[in-house]
């Protein structure tokens, strides 16, 4: 009797999910178990690869063997359920907390990387701005962490052996750059937070200066700087 679609799906799925099901699945399907194992490696490798790519900083902050052991456990617990491959890595940071793996700063770093993944696929449309109009970057996420993650993350990204940071509450601004849609993040500078509030509240530079007691040029400078890094979007000047 030819094998049915339902049987193929059931046995291939079992072989991919459970190593101990592989010999039985191979027998039921009439296939070489070593060849069936190729698919098991591929399927699991895709999820593991997505975790490695999206949590590269967290991996750099861990002993390699320890990180790989966590990835293997995560792949066992979290099969991919979405056609977007990266989506299967989104639950890695909360899972680390759930299983109490890694140190608190390492888990916080993983949460930052999970947040960056969310910013990468934020569906907010870019606003159409008239000349002179300004708006907040719609992909902007203001993130709060109990550790100063940005300098640590930057050091890890440069391949430096950086020690775990001491606790210190910090704000991180993560967003896609409007010019090339690349995700970037910065430690929140007070001037940038001020600029964001000015735009959020719809104030002119003069109104913001009056409200904050700062000179107008200082407000304009903060706004220009925030626009320069992509936190604020500005309508193109009229030609």
């Amino acid at each position: 009797m030819p094998v049915t679609l339902a049987e193929v799906h059931r046995w291939v799925h079992a072989a991919v999910r459970r190593e101990d099901a592989l010999p039985q699945a191979a027998q039921a399907l009439g296939v070489d178990p070593d060849r069936l194992a190729i698919y098991r490696r591929f399927v699991r490798g895709h999820v593991a690869g997505a975790v490695r790519v999206n949590y590269a900083l967290t991996a750099a902050a861990c002993a390699p063997d320890a990180f790989e052991a966590l990835v293997t456990r995560y792949v066992d617990a979290h099969p991919a359920t979405h056609w977007r491959l990266d989506a299967c890595a989104e639950a890695f940071a909360p899972w680390l907390a759930e299983v109490d793996a890694l140190t608190p700063p390492q888990r916080a770093l993983a949460e930052l990387e999970a947040a960056l993944m969310a910013v990468r696929v934020d569906p907010s449309p870019w606003p159409a701005l008239a000349p002179g109009q300004a708006a907040l970057n719609p992909t902007l996420a203001l993130l709060e962490f109990p550790y100063p993650l940005v300098p640590w993350a930057l050091a890890l990204g440069r391949g430096e052996a950086a020690p775990l940071p001491d606790p210190l509450p910090s704000l991180v601004l993560a967003f896609r750059r409007p010019v090339d849609e690349v995700v970037t993040y910065h430690a929140a500078h007070p001037d940038w937070l001020f600029a964001l509030k000015v735009i959020h509240d719809g104030l002119s530079a003069h109104q913001a200066a009056a409200a904050s007691g700062q000179p107008v040029p200082a407000v304009q400078r903060a706004l220009a700087e925030a626009a320069g890094i992509g936190l604020i979007l500005q309508g193109a000047p009229a030609t």
């Binding site: 059931r10 291939v12 799925h13 991919v16 591929f42 056609w83 491959l85």
Partner: peptide, 8 residues
């Protein structure tokens, strides 16, 4: 299969 994306 079975609600999972195998990406293979």
């Amino acid at each position: 299969a079975h609600g999972e994306a195998l990406h293979e």
